[in-house]
C-alpha cells in the first residue's frame, strides 16, 4: 500500500547549519506516528517542511490522496492545508483577540468559497455557507469538548483548553494528516489523559496523526510506530519496543530521558 506521506531524503539547510540531513520515512494512513528526539534534533523543522513553512533544501515529499500521488515540497502553507495537511504549533498560536468560534470558523476558509460580492450581497449561497460554517465549527468544538465555550474569547480559555482549541481549529480544515507539535506540553495528568482519548477519537474520525512529544510515557502508549531524529538525521524507526531497545537511541536520547522517567 502506498503511504499517505512519503518523506524522501529531506535535507534543510539554514545558512551553514544543516538542520535536517537526508531524512526518509513514511507516514501510513490510519496510524499514529511519533516523531521524537532530543532538543534541537530537527523535529519542528521537519514539521515546518511538511506544513510548507520551510522549503526543503533537497529531497521530496510525496502525498498520496485517493490513489493519486503528488510531489508537494515547497508548496505554501495554505496549499498544504488545502491539500489536507493541518498542524498545531509548539507555542500556541491562536487568534487570541477573537472568539473560540471565530478561531474555528477561520479554519473553514479553505473549504468555503464566498467572495467579496457574495459577502456584501449576502446571497442565498453565502447564507447557506455561513450556516454550514457555524455548524461544522460547532461540530468540531463539541468534538474536542469546547462547544459550550464557543462564544468566549480564545484568550480566556485555560492552557489545556487552548491546546484543544488549536486541535479543533486544525481539524476544521478537514485534514487527512494532522501534525501535532507537543500537544501535551504544559498539561496536567488529567488533561493529558483527555488528550489521549481525543487523539484516539481523531484517528477514529479517519485522520492520520503525526506527533512530536517529549512525554515518553504518552508516546510509548499511543504510538504504534516511532521515528527518532538526532542532530538532523534519522537514527531509528520502528515500534516503541524496538526503538526503546535500540542502542543508538538509548545513547542519543533515552539514556538521558530514562533518568527523568
Amino acid at each position: 500500500m502506498t503511504p499517505l506521506l512519503e518523506v524522501n531524503g529531506i535535507s534543510k539547510r539554514f545558512g551553514g547549519i544543516l538542520a535536517l540531513t537526508d531524512v526518509s520515512f513514511n507516514v501510513i494512513e490510519g496510524e499514529i506516528l511519533g516523531l521524537i528526539g532530543p532538543n534541537g534534533a530537527g523535529k519542528t523543522t521537519m514539521f515546518n517542511c511538511i506544513a510548507g513553512v520551510y522549503k526543503p533544501t533537497s529531497g521530496d515529499l510525496v502525498f498520496t490522496l485517493g490513489g493519486k500521488s503528488q510531489r508537494i515540497n515547497g508548496r505554501k502553507p495554505e496549499k498544504m492545508t488545502e491539500l489536507g495537511i493541518a498542524r498545531t504549533f509548539q507555542n500556541i498560536r491562536l487568534f487570541s483577540a477573537l472568539t473560540v468560534l471565530d478561531n474555528v470558523r477561520i479554519a473553514r476558509h479553505c473549504r468555503t468559497t464566498s467572495n467579496f460580492f457574495r459577502s456584501v450581497l449576502r446571497t442565498r449561497f453565502q447564507r447557506a455557507e455561513e450556516k454550514e460554517i457555524v455548524d461544522a465549527s460547532m461540530r468540531w468544538l463539541d468534538f474536542v469538548g469546547l462547544g459550550h465555550h464557543a462564544l468566549a474569547n480564545a484568550s480566556s480559555l485555560s492552557y489545556g483548553d487552548q491546546r484543544r482549541l488549536e486541535i479543533a481549529r486544525a481539524l476544521a480544515t478537514e485534514p487527512k494528516l494532522l501534525l501535532l507539535d507537543e500537544p501535551a506540553a504544559g498539561m496536567n495528568p488529567k488533561e493529558t489523559r483527555m488528550l489521549v482519548d481525543l487523539i484516539h477519537a481523531i484517528l477514529d474520525a479517519g485522520v492520520t496523526v503525526m506527533l512530536i512529544e517529549h512525554d515518553m510515557k504518552l508516546v510509548m502508549t499511543i504510538c504504534k510506530r516511532l521515528v527518532v531524529l538526532d542532530h538532523g538525521t534519522l537514527i531509528a524507526e520502528g515500534g516503541p519496543k524496538e526503538v526503546r531497545e535500540n542502542p543508538q537511541v538509548i545513547e542519543a536520547y533515552l539514556g538521558r530521558g530514562a533518568a527523568h522517567a
Partner: peptide, 15 residues
C-alpha cells in the same frame, strides 16, 4: 482578522 492576529496561523488555516 486572522492575518492581523497571527499570519502564520492564518496561513495554516488555508488563508
Amino acid at each position: 482578522y486572522a492575518i492581523r492576529e497571527d499570519p502564520l496561523a492564518a496561513a495554516s488555516c488555508g488563508v
